[in-house]
Design a protein around this nucleic acid. Structure first.
Lengths: 138, 138
DNA sequence: AGAAATTTGTCCGTATGTATC
DNA sequence: AGATACATACGGACAAATTTC
């Protein structure tokens, strides 16, 4: 079984298969993934390889791991259908006094605002807004 | 001699120390970090632990690794020179209607705001504000 | 309440493949 | 080609958090 890996690493192949199961609903959102020991037996790879594969999915925010509990499948957010919402947008806003002072411009000067929303399990966890001058020299 | 100090993983302690060296200029931007073998000898930990620590910094975009060559320190984005002011701060703010809708709370609910200012050549180039609920579960 | 089992987290040592100089 | 260094993979060990009995 320990084949040399030409081209694709094994942990990536495992990650691809697990991702497929989550996105197709074979592993449903909110449910636990099989334990590392189970996955080790199924894929015939070492525990480290399984953990590496899960780390890939965690980095993609597709799963969440809890110490002593297990790894949960999150709601996948890559639906490209009609219900897909925009998580980021840009718009022009007027500088409030604080922003005006920071940028050394007059209050009301138009700034470019970029807003991005990150959700965890469907609920908003963090909102990030960036502001910059329109004619950015950098 | 590998004494176990629990509470903080070793790879994290190594990452903290390396991050400190980069941010204080002990390791200058653009230069190569010491090789794994060197770090292994210095910190008295295994290669895997060193690699895990470097992965942390890579995830923070503090370093860049090139296959077969080494790991470079990137330019850190807050200068610590004598004229350096506080570029970041946290405070409590009341949710405006838009934020309230995003977080699904009532208008006026207290949120945690983190503001960070980046300057280029002394002038403000970008202001970043993040908002989150006070009881962060993450 | 407590002990045991389960599960993830960390760490070690080793081996081999692969890319760069 | 040789040296060096990163990437991948394995197996084992113990700790820590959680669940179950």
């Amino acid at each position: 079984m320990p084949f040399p890996h030409y081209g694709q690493p094994r942990y990536r192949a495992v990650a691809d298969e697990l991702r497929r199961r989550i996105e197709t609903g074979t592993i449903r959102p909110g449910t636990l993934l099989p334990a590392e020991s189970i996955l080790t037996a199924e894929f015939r790879v070492s525990r480290g390889t399984i953990r590496q594969a899960i780390a890939v999915l965690r980095n993609e925010h597709l799963v969440t791991t809890e110490h002593g509990r297990g790894t949960y499948a999150n709601a996948c957010r890559h639906a490209s259908g009609p219900g897909a919402e925009l998580e980021a947008r840009e718009r022009h806003v007027s500088a409030d006094p604080e922003l005006a002072a920071l940028f050394a411009v007059e209050v009301g000067t138009v700034l470019l605002e970029h807003e991005s929303v990150t959700r965890t399990n469907g609920t908003v966890g963090l909102v990030v807004r960036t502001y910059q001058l329109l004619q950015a020299e950098q």
